[in-house]
């Protein structure tokens, strides 16, 4: 049996205005200690102003083997991009 403390994924907001970004993980018995361990492990040099921890087991991920079919529908829809549309050059600010 695995007697390790549960694993938590750690997300750091490096400064105000930016999103939290995944930086790694820590083992901790509970959420409070997970935040403390995350601080000691990932923010020893002012790398962040805010931390999130999420139990690794609670993360639901897409299947990498299905990445093709999963993300392909976007590939043939070039009309979702502004460059698809032809606008005469004399038209400005569009």
């Amino acid at each position: 049996m695995n007697r390790d403390w549960p694993l938590w994924e750690v997300f750091v907001r490096s400064r105000g205005g930016l999103s939290h970004k995944h930086v790694g993980s820590v083992h901790a018995p509970d959420s409070e200690l997970a935040v403390r361990h995350a601080r000691d492990t990932y923010t020893r040099r002012m790398e962040g102003v805010s931390l999130w921890v999420v139990k690794s087991a609670d993360i639901v991920a897409s299947d990498p083997d299905q990445a093709g079919p999963m993300f392909a529908p976007a590939e043939d829809k070039v009309y979702r991009h502004p460059t698809f549309y032809e606008i005469p050059p004399e038209v400005k600010h569009i």
Binding site: N2, D4, V26, H27, D40, T41, R44
Partner: peptide
């Protein structure tokens, strides 16, 4: 820092299916 390095690396190894223990 060296303790931190050990922790980053154990976590990386754990993603391959081994445990810390």
């Amino acid at each position: 820092d060296e303790g931190g390095h050990g922790l980053y690396l154990y976590c990386a190894a754990e993603t391959l299916g081994t445990s810390r223990e």
